[in-house]
Simulated assay, not measured.
Amino acid sequence: MDKKSIAALKQLFESEGISEECITHLKMDDRKGVQQLIKSYETKKHKAEIAEKNFMEMSVFESRAYANGHEYVAGIDEAGRGPLAGPVVAAAVILPRDFKLLGLNDSKQLSEQVRNHFFNVIKEQAISYGVSIISSQKIDEVNIFEATKLAMHDAISQLSPNPNHILIDAVNLNGLPCTSEAITKGDAKSISIAAASVLAKVSRDQIMKKIHNEYPVYGFESNMGYGTKYHLNNLMARGATPYHRQSFSPVRNTTHP
């Protein structure tokens, strides 16, 4: 094998146009730059293998449902049960059997940039998805748990075709049109629930950024309505907005600005 320049080898590694046999040969090359390229390549390969393994482990619930004869398996999750302001959002999604998105996980474990990218990929590749938004006023009327279930039912109703089996993150839903499983920490155990968590989280974040433009002093763009110190200080000093949940402490005893 001719001794290629570091730049040429870097290009080969980046284009994945290099064989394992060539890498074995390059390990005898005493140039520091070559060894750094090999180390970087092997680290990237190891991470890809871990991502592949994790994705397979998160496909177990879906694979079992397919094996039981369920053609359309839906995942469902919510975002926004804990904040002091803004809606609760639920998403439901049916992914194709051959769906593959390495790195997909609970949306809270992903960076905003990755979440936004996955959000677009999931919407493009999903067989069907639905997103439901329940306002803070409705949350105050029925309580947050009931509002979450309303959002989940509504998101499911938007799916077409109808699901044959539903995987739900930690909530038992009654009155579903098919069989279901409630999975504790399901957004880290099921690719369908993880995909739903990304749709719900990004959809809600987009709403909170719009609310931030209307009421920038509360920092909704960064805290997404959660009770950060900055948010609480401004809530106490300026009172609640129409988007705050009046039934939540410490919002209850404040006034509208």
Rank of each mutant, 00 (worst) to 15 (best):
V34A: 10
Q35T: 11
Q35F: 09
Q35N: 14
Q35W: 12
Q35C: 09
Q35K: 15
Q36R: 15
Q36D: 11
Q36S: 10
L37Q: 14
L37S: 13
L37A: 13
L37E: 15
I38H: 11
I38E: 10
I38N: 11
K39E: 09
K39V: 00
K39T: 04
S40Q: 15
S40H: 12
S40E: 14
Y41N: 06
Y41Q: 05
Y41S: 03
Y41E: 07
Y41L: 07
T43P: 02
T43V: 13
T43W: 11
T43C: 11
T43R: 15
K44F: 08
K45P: 08
K45W: 09
K45C: 08
H46C: 01
H46N: 10
K47D: 12
K47F: 12
K47G: 10
A48Q: 14
E49N: 12
E49A: 11
E49Y: 03
E49W: 05
E49S: 12
I50P: 07
I50T: 14
A51L: 14
E52Q: 13
E52G: 06
E52D: 12
K53W: 01
K53Y: 07
K53P: 04
K53S: 06
N54C: 06
N54S: 08
F55P: 10
F55V: 03
F55L: 11
M56A: 14
M56P: 04
E57R: 13
E57A: 13
E57H: 10
E57I: 06
E57N: 13
E57T: 09
E57P: 02
E57G: 01
M58W: 07
M58F: 04
M58D: 01
M58H: 00
M58C: 07
S59N: 13
S59G: 07
S59L: 09
V60R: 10
V60K: 10
V60F: 07
F61W: 12
F61S: 09
E62Y: 00
E62T: 05
S63N: 15
R64Y: 00
R64K: 01
R64I: 02
R64S: 05
R64E: 02
A65K: 05
A65W: 06
A65T: 07
A65C: 07
Y66I: 03
Y66D: 06
A67M: 03
A67R: 09
A67P: 03
A67C: 00
N68C: 04
G69P: 03
G69V: 00
H70Y: 15
H70G: 07
H70F: 13
E71V: 01
Y72I: 00
Y72T: 06
Y72A: 06
V73G: 02
V73T: 04
V73A: 03
A74C: 04
A74S: 05
